[in-house]
Computed example of a mutant assay.
Amino acid sequence: MKTLQEIPIEKAAPVLKLLGDKTRLTMLAMLYEGECCVCEFTEIFKMSQPSISQHLRKLRDAGVVNEERRGQWVFYSLNKDNDLYALAESIIMQLPSQIGKLEELEKNGNRVIWCG
């Protein structure tokens, strides 16, 4: 993993542009707390599955998140091996924790826990 000083501006700018979107920035902060399924994001953001998937595709294509299919579910997690992880993490650390959103999902029985 590279330190913040070693990230070329040409690589940082597109990711910063992606994170300029409130939904994607919130998604990243949530993923910092743990992996999430697409259906959890649809519940939290009250958005359609295609809209959520489009946001996640952009983050995945930039290498910021990993995608893993498990049965009928698709889970996302932060890509800690990406050269830009240090940049993403430094931004996330400036944001309020999103753990409450995940705890609310769990309380309401909408948290997907993979046991396979």
Rank of each mutant, 00 (worst) to 15 (best):
residue 51 S to T: 15
residue 101 K to T: 09
residue 53 S to T: 09
residue 37 C to S: 11
residue 36 C to V: 04
residue 45 F to I: 01
residue 33 E to K: 15
residue 40 E to A: 07
residue 101 K to R: 14
residue 116 G to K: 00
residue 70 R to D: 04
residue 18 L to K: 00
residue 14 P to S: 13
residue 10 E to I: 14
residue 78 L to S: 14
residue 4 L to F: 06
residue 17 K to S: 14
residue 76 Y to D: 01
residue 116 G to M: 10
residue 62 A to V: 00
residue 67 E to S: 03
residue 46 K to S: 06
residue 58 K to N: 05
residue 47 M to F: 14
residue 50 P to C: 08
residue 115 C to N: 11
residue 38 V to K: 00
residue 10 E to W: 02
residue 101 K to P: 03
residue 31 L to W: 05
residue 57 R to C: 09
residue 46 K to E: 11
residue 71 G to S: 05
residue 41 F to G: 00
residue 89 E to F: 07
residue 26 T to K: 15
residue 103 E to V: 04
residue 9 I to M: 13
residue 11 K to Y: 07
residue 59 L to R: 02
residue 108 N to T: 06
residue 69 R to K: 06
residue 112 V to N: 08
residue 96 P to Y: 13
residue 89 E to Y: 09
residue 22 K to C: 08
residue 72 Q to A: 05
residue 82 N to Y: 11
residue 85 Y to Q: 01
residue 38 V to Q: 06
residue 70 R to W: 00
residue 44 I to S: 03
residue 68 E to H: 15
residue 6 E to W: 14
residue 109 G to H: 01
residue 9 I to K: 10
residue 81 D to H: 11
residue 22 K to Y: 11
residue 46 K to Y: 02
residue 21 D to I: 12
residue 70 R to Y: 05
residue 8 P to D: 14
residue 23 T to N: 14
residue 77 S to L: 02
residue 36 C to G: 06
residue 100 G to E: 10
residue 114 W to M: 06
residue 4 L to D: 14
residue 83 D to W: 03
residue 110 N to L: 13
residue 23 T to H: 08
residue 105 L to K: 10
residue 15 V to F: 11
residue 57 R to F: 08
residue 84 L to F: 09
residue 50 P to M: 00
residue 55 H to C: 12
residue 45 F to G: 08
residue 70 R to V: 09
residue 73 W to P: 01
residue 4 L to H: 01
residue 103 E to Y: 07
residue 19 L to T: 09
residue 85 Y to T: 07
residue 78 L to F: 10
residue 111 R to D: 10
residue 87 L to K: 01
residue 78 L to I: 14
residue 116 G to W: 00
residue 66 N to L: 05
residue 76 Y to P: 03
residue 71 G to M: 10
residue 114 W to R: 03
residue 105 L to N: 02
residue 90 S to C: 06
residue 20 G to K: 00
residue 12 A to I: 03
residue 24 R to F: 13
residue 67 E to D: 11
residue 46 K to I: 05
residue 26 T to E: 13
residue 45 F to K: 02
residue 102 L to E: 12
residue 37 C to L: 03
residue 20 G to D: 06
residue 12 A to T: 04
residue 40 E to I: 03
residue 108 N to Y: 07
